[in-house]
Design a protein around this nucleic acid. Structure first.
Length: 188
DNA sequence: ACAAGGATTCACT
DNA sequence: GTGAATCCTTGTA
């Protein structure tokens, strides 16, 4: 599911973002997933049917958005890590302070801020006519690259981060210091 | 009830 | 490249 979201257009009101980078999390078998230890109040949405938004607050200041991917009862999600604002620049800029246009939605916290996604959108279904919509491209024309996950201390080297190869709107890769040495050493 | 640490960003060097 | 800001969730006592 996760790589199939690359190139999709996520819209909330006037702002629309083209998704350039995602990261997959699979609850039951994935120690890095918020759902690994079972259902809680925070992750409940991920245990529901696919197509809904799992939003969580992180580092005391940022919201991050996942599209729930698994069938009802099995937790899985795709974290929306980065995107390119393609519509609604005035609104997006007003929410993003001094950021350059390239950085308006380049990163998980930046993406939700540009789109105005917070707890108010928790659980929203995105494949219908609701306030938040996600439209996948009719033609698969993107070159997909994959690699280790960002920010997680466990199972970081599962190559479950997917991005559009060469796209300037992909976020900067930074390995978590808690993830230990990389399985495959990074190139200088 | 308490402590730990996090699916990050920004300013500054 | 480094460090600070900041608060919620979770595991353990």
């Amino acid at each position: 599911m996760a790589p199939s979201l690359l190139g999709a257009i996520l819209r909330h009101g006037e702002v629309a973002v083209r998704i350039t980078e995602v990261e997959a999390y699979n609850g039951a078998s994935d120690p890095a997933s918020h759902a690994y230890r079972g259902r809680t109040a925070r992750n409940a949405v991920m245990f529901g049917p696919s197509g809904h938004l799992y939003l969580y607050f992180n580092y005391g200041m940022h919201w991050a958005a996942n599209v729930v991917c698994g069938p009802d009862g099995r937790a899985a999600g795709a974290l929306l890590r980065s995107g390119e604002v393609v519509e609604g620049f005035d609104v997006a800029r007003s929410r993003r302070g001094t950021a350059t246009d390239r950085d308006l939605a380049r990163g998980p916290g930046r993406l939700t801020q540009a789109l105005g996604l917070t707890s108010a959108q928790r659980g929203t279904y995105v494949f219908g006519a609701g306030p938040v919509t996600l439209i996948r491209p009719t033609i698969e024309g993107v070159a997909v690259a994959s690699g280790p996950r960002v920010g997680v201390s466990l199972e970081a080297d599962r190559p479950w981060r997917f991005w559009i190869a060469g796209d300037p709107y992909v976020s900067a890769y930074r390995r978590s210091p808690r993830a230990g040495p990389p399985a495959v050493p990074e190139l200088p």
